[in-house]
Design a binder for these strands. Structure first.
Lengths: 235, 235
DNA sequence: ACAAAAGTGTTGTATTTACACCCATGA
DNA sequence: TCATGGGTGTAAATACAACACTTTTGT
């Protein structure tokens, strides 16, 4: 798929081409905790140091598709909520070769994750609060990814990917507490969320988390969670 | 600067490399209006159609540096406020070759702009409200750039690049009205901005814009406009 | 009975919004 | 004097935060 005609060599030929990678900040949610999937780097330089899973953008795929491919390979999951974070393009950000990296973040459910993939590569879920130092500029990628996740979660309900079909408001609150890394008042959160009018109460109740039992809710319609609803949580 | 040892050919060699471009959404501000600098494309395909100024990322420069270089070349200015917007990486976004583009936006003062550069390339400043269709995905770049500018301007005062050293609160308000594309209440804006404590009133007055005259303000200290100040304008 | 989460209500504060209104002055 | 933007004040509405209190039920 090389383009070699005269026009192209005139317009593009004089310019260098670069490896373009996608690195994924994979947030795994389970039970009130947000964790981060890290891989020990399997080759020099920086062998053994922790890093984000990544891969190279191929010729006929978009960076979004590359991210989907990497997520599938590393977690076994597809249909994942995912957003581009930023491009990292310092010329010497990787020692061995120049690689321009596009950072993405993704949200997955820890309980749906394929355990075997963990062992195969020695990957580990780290809590955000006690994760190790990462190679290159991956620390910065994580920081920016979390900031973008918080921004996005502040404008739309991001629950559908991380919670079961039916969920209680407490479950949703714990998810938001994990994303925003702080406690949220149960009563105020409940009122705020319900006032948005995007949740529908089912007639079933959850009895596992409390004696009284809590109603299950679900989204009013598929997709409606992405409509304009103004700020949910102040950032 | 090719890396050809065995390790690299193993780790990187099998992967394709891509042209990486930087496209700049250059917002020019003057007199209450935000304009966009557009170039007629000088070669096929899409010759004559309007596009954002851009260029290719070279071997030893970061994408930020590439953006600075392009801004210098197209406007004659350096030391410009600038932010990365996003990467655009659909495989067929440009017809002739695969180019992954990193969009940036920048803010410049229209009155400092080098007029000669305009004529040389046939570039034109377009008002945001009546700009032509752009090639490729450049329309989307502009939309995302404006959204990011609004987000950033909502958290920090972006005036220092676009206003003179000394400016009146009305001038600052007009800038914010241009950025947010809506009118802002003069009294409320004044109180909000002053409450941030980052402006210092000078003892000089502007007499050109009103009969009464308005005090000039300036930033308390250089750089302070970037400190955390919470939301200025609700987005 | 009581602990613990679900769910509702209340209250004080801060912020936002929409104005009214006085001030200063050039034309 | 009067039109105009500069600048201040105020009142209603809304949003936010803290927390009391009531409900339900498994143990």
């Amino acid at each position: 798929m090389e383009s070699t005609n005269e026009f192209l060599s005139e317009m593009y030929g004089a310019h260098p081409r670069h490896y373009v990678a996608v690195d994924c900040v994979i947030f795994g949610y389970n039970n009130g905790e947000l964790k981060l999937l890290l891989y020990p780097r399997s080759f020099e330089p920086s062998k053994g140091n922790w890093s984000l899973p990544g891969g190279f953008v191929q010729n006929h795929e978009s960076s979004d598709q590359a991210a989907i491919r990497i997520l599938k390979k590393t977690t076994g999951l597809d249909n994942i909520f995912m957003e581009q974070v930023a491009a990292f393009a310092e010329p010497d950000r990787e020692k061995a070769a120049r690689v321009i990296s596009l950072a993405y973040y993704a949200l997955v459910r820890l309980d749906q994750y394929d355990e075997n993939l963990l062992k195969e590569y020695g990957a580990t879920w780290y809590s955000l609060t006690d994760m190790p130092d990462l190679i290159f500029d991956h620390n910065e990628m994580v920081a920016k990814a979390l900031a973008k996740l918080q921004y996005t979660a502040g404008y739309q309900l991001v629950g559908s990917e991380l919670l079961p079909e039916l969920f209680t408001l407490t479950q949703l609150r714990r998810l938001y507490e994990a994303i925003f890394q702080r406690e949220l008042d149960p009563g105020n959160f409940r009122k705020k969320i319900l006032s948005l009018g995007i949740l529908k109460r089912s007639n079933r109740k959850d009895s596992t988390e409390s004696k009284k039992g809590a109603y299950y809710y679900c989204y009013h319609q598929e997709g409606i969670q992405e409509k304009e609803i103004g700020r949910i949580i102040k950032v």
